[in-house]
Amino acid sequence: MLLHQCEKLNVPIDSEFVKMAVVIHDAGKIVHPHEISAPGSNHEPAGEKMLLEKGISPTLARCCLSHARWQDMECSLEELILAVADTLWKGKRIDSLELRVIDHIAGSLKKDRWDVFPALDSLFEAIANDGDNRLSRSKGG
């Protein structure tokens, strides 16, 4: 849904990068399986390390870190889209992350924040609203 909206707005984005990052960003949970159902961040550097060892590009492997550490890192739009997708999927909304995405998109389109805010904010809300359903299905109940 996020990539579709970016396409509708003519946002220049590497959608293939985002799709791949969505698949691999939590790869470190393979070596830290307790973080599948409990809080933890050990999977982030472990995932990056594992992917680098498997020959994945450093830019893509970095998504293991940036999806959760976007506040502390300089991130591409693709990394920010992954981070916001990850939080919205869980039904969470983080204003500072969402505004960072909106501002990045507005900047790339040479528009004001408020020109793109309504469409993106509505989309963020729609995605987050179904978070409880997705989480209950992913837990098998």
Rank of each mutant, 00 (worst) to 15 (best):
E79P: 01
V116D: 11
A21H: 00
V101K: 04
I94D: 13
N129F: 00
L99Y: 08
F117N: 03
E78R: 00
D14P: 05
M20P: 01
I24F: 01
A27R: 07
K90A: 10
A21V: 03
L123I: 06
V11L: 02
V116H: 08
E44C: 13
L77V: 05
M20S: 10
H43L: 04
D26V: 05
P39S: 11
L97E: 11
D95V: 05
K49W: 14
G40N: 08
K54H: 09
G107A: 14
G91S: 01
V11Q: 06
P58M: 09
I81Q: 00
Q71C: 01
H104C: 14
S15N: 09
F117S: 01
S96T: 12
G107V: 07
K110R: 14
G40Q: 09
K111R: 15
D72V: 09
P33K: 07
V116P: 05
L97D: 11
I30W: 07
R100S: 03
V23G: 01
V101I: 12
T59I: 08
S122Y: 04
M73I: 11
W114K: 14
D14S: 07
K49A: 08
D95S: 08
P45S: 03
V116M: 11
G28F: 06
K29F: 06
E125D: 15
C63W: 00
V18M: 00
D103Q: 14
E48D: 03
L97A: 12
S122R: 11
P12F: 10
K110T: 11
R113N: 11
P58I: 04
V23P: 01
W114V: 02
K111D: 04
N10D: 14
D72S: 12
A126G: 12
M50G: 07
L99I: 06
H34I: 10
P39N: 13
D95N: 05
D72H: 13
V101G: 06
E78A: 03
L9P: 10
S96C: 10
L51S: 01
A106E: 02
G40A: 08
F117V: 03
R113P: 07
I105M: 13
L99H: 08
L123T: 08
E53L: 13
D103L: 01
L97M: 12
V22H: 06
I105A: 02
M50E: 09
V31R: 07
L51P: 08
N10I: 04
V22Q: 05
N10H: 14
I56Y: 08
L123K: 04
D86A: 02
L9E: 14
L82Q: 02
D86L: 12
V84G: 03
G91A: 00
G91Y: 01
L80E: 05
H104L: 15
L109Y: 12
G47N: 07
S66K: 03
A27K: 09
E48F: 02
G47Y: 10
L65T: 03
